[in-house]
């Protein structure tokens, strides 16, 4: 990166040039000290009397040739290229920086590889939130700027090309409002021996993401009964969620029942703690089925919280997706859970 030459210019000759440092003013009445002109300001004719009032007859300015551009102009170009679907920004940089915000509530997708390629270009930068985070409409999802005040056009062009090639670096997938069939398995719950604890937990998480529970079916640990419940419930659902029966005991039949009801299980067992016994699969018509192990009851956040938004966003979850969750898939079991503001699930 090359900082352009700084040179001294008489105030009257500085119109159109870029100030290379802050100019401070002290208000004698209020004793307030602050900057009258910020570094990077492009001097106009109206500024000259004030500069003279401040005792500035000569200024340090940056020279900008035709191969260069001002950081503000660069930021607008960069933000435009970075923003993919449902990512928005105001083309008014503040101190050279533009924030990109989510246009809708949904799942943030960051093209991490393209972002890295972008950031390998000299003189520009972009920082984002983690990919696969649920964001609300209006949330900041990325920030970008040029590094020097005056930036080489060719670097901006390279960065813009890198972002354009990926159709933007950040985008937001809206969450589909889905009708969910909940199938709760376990003899102990079905026979009324104990109260079910899954339904309120799943309902809370599902509703927080704008979906609804269309049906709740309780089943004993009976393969045919669970299969029948799945066949019955999925006809009227966009997503089937099964709880219990996810372990390796003889009574644990959920993955088998899902398979026998026609689902292809793309993952049984996950690289996330809590949630190692998680299951994800799809029926022939594309309807997803998720199996939530018992950790879903007593841990505030599990793999279910990482996968549910992605399913609602319409992503097809593969075993590769689940395997990638291993890095960062260890919940720290904090006394106070601050998810998603924590490392849990932030790998990919």
């Amino acid at each position: 990166m090359c900082e352009p030459d700084q040179k001294t210019v008489a105030v009257e000759d500085a119109i159109g040039l870029v100030l290379s440092h802050d100019i401070t003013e002290i208000n004698a009445r209020t004793h307030h000290k602050g900057s009258a002109f910020r570094r990077g300001h492009v001097i106009t004719g109206d500024d000259i009397p004030k500069l003279l009032d401040l005792g500035k007859e000569n200024l340090y300015v940056l020279e900008m040739n035709e191969d260069q551009m001002h950081e503000d102009d660069a930021a607008v170009l960069l933000a435009g290229a970075i923003s993919g679907n449902n990512a928005q920004f105001m083309p008014e940089p503040r101190e050279g920086r533009i924030n990109i915000i989510a246009g809708v509530t949904g799942l943030l997708k960051v093209n991490v590889e393209a972002l890295t390629r972008f950031n390998l270009v000299d003189e520009v930068m972009c920082a984002t939130r983690h990919t696969n985070t649920v964001v609300q409409a209006g949330d900041i999802i990325a920030g970008t700027r040029a590094i020097p005040l005056v930036v080489e056009k060719k670097q901006v062009e390279r960065a813009v090309a890198a972002a354009n090639q990926a159709d933007g670096l950040v985008s937001v997938l809206p969450l589909k409002s889905s009708r969910i069939a909940l199938i709760i398995t376990g003899n102990e719950v079905y026979t009324g021996r104990i109260d079910d604890a899954f339904e309120p937990v799943i309902r809370g998480k599902v509703e927080a993401l704008g979906s609804s529970i269309a049906s709740v079916t309780k089943c004993p640990d009976n393969l045919l009964a669970i299969r029948q419940a799945v066949l019955e419930a999925r006809a009227d659902a966009d997503l089937v969620i099964m709880t219990g029966g996810m372990s390796v005991d003889p009574d644990d039949l959920t993955p088998l029942a899902a398979r026998e009801a026609g689902a292809e299980i793309s993952a049984y067992g996950s690289a996330v703690l809590p949630g190692a016994m998680f299951m994800a699969g799809y029926f022939e018509d594309g309807t997803p089925v998720l199996g939530v192990p018992a950790c879903g009851i007593h841990h505030p956040r599990t793999i279910f919280d990482l996968i549910l938004p992605r399913v609602l966003a319409g992503e097809k979850i593969t075993s590769d997706d689940i395997a990638r969750l291993g890095h960062g898939g260890l919940c720290l079991d904090c006394e106070e859970c601050n998810f998603p503001v924590c490392p849990f699930g932030k790998s990919a």
Partner: peptide
């Protein structure tokens, strides 16, 4: 036809 789960073939559930 939805058969009550406790009427399905399989081990007794209670």
């Amino acid at each position: 036809v939805v058969t009550p789960a406790e009427d399905m073939p399989g081990s007794p559930i209670s």
